[in-house]
Amino acid sequence: MKVVTTIKEVRENVKQWKKEGQTVGFVPTMGYLHEGHGSLITKARENNDKVVVSIFVNPMQFGPTEDLDSYPRDLEKDSKYCESLGVDLIFHPEPSEMYHDDFSSYVDMSVLTEELCGLSRPVHFRGVCTVVNKLFNIVQPDRAYFGEKDAQQLAIIKHMVQDLNMDIEVVGCPIIREEDGLAKSSRNTYLSPEERKAALVLSQTINLAKQLIADGEKDADVLVAKMKENIEKEPLAKIDYVKAVNGLTMQQQKEIKAPMLIAMAVYIGKTRLIDNTILH
């Protein structure tokens, strides 16, 4: 396994692989890898001859008051984990490698980015779309892998690939959870023991939503109200949003019917966590 820091090195390696007729799977990450990332890497390993993982904490997708500086980083640990899963190449650039001093080109999207996380993090998806577009241009993968925990992001990436006629298959992979149900996240490391226990309210509320739907609930407003009521029972929880939206357009809908994304963002103390369930 190689760890490279320049765009030139990535392109040289991928160009050689393509010349040999090998397929390339790509997993873009911000590092501090866990089993959720591992499931994406494993899927990429199964489906492709070569696997590239990027580890880059992208400054463009963080707002001025967000956790860019404190976001957890551990390249040595990440490298060992990637190697154990059969990764062929890690791309770990500095921000200056990705964004030169007079950088001024961005990828913006309307509609899909205006709901859910886009409301409370207005610069976020512009940064995500721009960096993913750049990474796709650098790596030129056949397939790219993203987690369904970031369901809005996954929908946006798929839409961007369609809109911009990119010859890349975007593969979504299921949420990986801790034994007690909490969705795996690099930000879980921010939680104190008390907050970690309180964070279970997210997965418990997702399970409540699933049960309500299984019991025949058809009104999205009623579903969301009951979810919010459950979260508000937890003193350490503060709701950013709880919404039921169309799974393709991210627009709110009144009736519970597929395709539907039931998603939430909740602060546990100062840590913002997300969770969701998708009605196919």
Rank of each mutant, 00 (worst) to 15 (best):
G63K: 04
G63H: 08
T65E: 13
D67S: 04
D67T: 12
L68E: 06
L68V: 07
S70E: 13
P72I: 08
R73C: 03
D74H: 03
E76F: 10
E76S: 14
D78I: 10
D78H: 13
D78N: 10
S79Q: 01
K80N: 13
K80L: 13
Y81T: 11
Y81E: 05
Y81H: 08
Y81W: 05
E83Y: 12
S84T: 02
S84E: 10
L85S: 09
G86R: 13
V87F: 02
D88V: 09
I90F: 01
F91A: 10
F91N: 08
F91Q: 04
H92A: 15
P93W: 01
S96D: 11
S96A: 15
E97A: 10
M98G: 06
M98N: 11
Y99L: 15
Y99A: 12
V111R: 08
L112V: 03
T113V: 12
E114Q: 08
E115P: 00
E115L: 00
E115M: 03
C117T: 11
L119G: 00
R121E: 10
R121Y: 03
P122Y: 00
F125H: 07
F125I: 14
F125V: 15
R126T: 11
C129F: 09
T130C: 09
V131Q: 01
L135N: 12
F136I: 06
V139R: 04
P141M: 10
P141I: 05
P141T: 07
A144F: 07
A144E: 09
G147H: 07
G147S: 06
K149E: 08
Q153E: 12
L154P: 10
A155K: 14
K158Y: 07
H159W: 02
M160E: 01
V161H: 04
V161T: 14
Q162W: 06
Q162K: 14
D163N: 04
L164F: 14
I168T: 03
E169K: 13
V170G: 02
